[in-house]
Design a protein around this nucleic acid. Structure first.
Lengths: 230, 230
DNA sequence: ATTCAAAATTCTGTATACAATATATTTTAC
DNA sequence: GTAAAATATATTGTATACAGAATTTTGAAT
């Protein structure tokens, strides 16, 4: 019963269920709802000022996406993320990011390449003034261009879903000391090899980027668990 | 308005939406509903003897899984599969099957290994008497053991979803002349390398298996399109 | 005969009502 | 005082009702 959700205002012509779904997903990602917390349909519906129907449909979708767990006749709970989950997600993501990087190196257009390079510069600027929110935003855009350049719509969808599933902690690990500059360097290698249409190097850069990201994430999780204990 | 769906009998305590979802999915996979065909909630509900609510929830799930396409305020249509789709699915599947094979080679238990070998023998027997239905069934079980041995639950889920999305035509291409025996040989290589816990060989076997499967599938699709034209 | 417009119908989107089950609370028996 | 059973309450699962939008049909005009 902790969080307040902003009431939905019906943007005519996207279905309510979509708006509701995004609102709840964002609330989970932002930590408004804690892992393990129970989500009740009536309560959510009241807070957002809609009926139970679109809320139910939104919850079903979030279950498919892995953000909540439903137990029949018992209720819905916010999924909590374990080390095991991180491992699973990164095993798959590594494989798919490598694929995407290789495909992008083959298929990217000059225009997309320019966009990526521009976004990279922008991230660099925001690292200077430490604007995390902005960095996360541009980083997402950066990766979206890459996935799009792979010319495989499903691939982008699957990767994005996997990314979102761990966004809660991903954001935090970005602030891990020194991680931002490393990320920057890894991204530059990735862009360079894609620009050279060098499939092997692009795949390698993607793999290294993933391994480092996972490593930082796990380190951060362990340290924060440590802090909690004492 | 072609197909008849069997009425749902409420298996007490699995939610209706699950049963409805499986019924519709199976109907799509079995070709009861043709690609592009419109699915109407009331009609489906009546045929299965339930209300619209569980049907709606089932359709939302099928949309996430890629079996149907929803256009807001317009309706739901059975997704139709194009060459582009086949390409996309196999690009991703290859990557993930290679991952799964590698992980399985590292992590499989002796018991699981025995099961895989047993299933392989069973498939061989059914190739003799040409029982396609049975082969598809055992083949599915065979792969399920492999995914399980990868010790990555999400991976199994994603691959199975991708597999199902093209089951409609996958089944047909299995009957392509000579394909069954080739599949058998590829499976044997895969099992052997996993049994030897040889990661590289297992990954290679998986990659080759996928490439051949896709190749046959595309060949079959092209030939059947050819037949249709005249 | 064809085309455009308006009315009617059909279907989706959302809200609400009802039924069934799980959980919490209270009462009773030991 | 504790434990078990019965009752009460809350919440999910399903059905239905109503509103609004899209499509189809019908009719008239060119």
């Amino acid at each position: 019963m902790s969080g307040h959700l902003s009431p939905i205002q019906l943007d005519s012509y996207r279905p309510l269920r979509e708006l509701v779904c995004e609102t709840i997903r964002q609330a989970i990602v932002d930590g408004v709802f804690s892992p393990g917390e129970r989500l009740m349909e009536i309560q959510l519906a009241d807070e957002m000022g809609v009926s139970r129907t679109p809320v139910r449909e939104a919850i079903r979708k979030l279950e498919l996406e892995g953000f909540v767990v439903m137990i029949p006749r018992r209720g819905t709970y916010v999924a909590d993320i374990s080390i095991k989950d991180i491992n699973e997600v990164y095993e798959i993501r590594t494989s798919l990011e490598v694929l995407a990087a290789g495909l992008a190196a083959e298929r990217i257009s000059d225009e997309e390449l320019e966009t990526m390079q521009r976004l990279l510069v922008e991230i660099g600027q925001h690292i200077e003034d430490g604007n995390i929110e902005k960095i996360v935003e541009i980083d997402t855009a950066f990766h979206d261009v890459l996935y799009k350049a792979s010319r495989n719509g499903r691939l982008a969808g699957i990767i994005n879903n996997l990314r979102e599933q761990i966004t809660v902690i991903r954001r935090r690990s970005m602030m891990y000391p020194g991680r931002l500059r490393n990320t920057m360097e890894e991204h530059r290698l990735l862009v360079d090899s894609i620009a050279a249409h060098d499939v092997d190097r692009a795949q390698n850069a993607a793999r290294i980027h993933m391994e480092n990201a996972e490593h930082t994430l796990l380190k951060d999780m362990l340290e924060s668990a440590e802090r909690k204990r004492k």
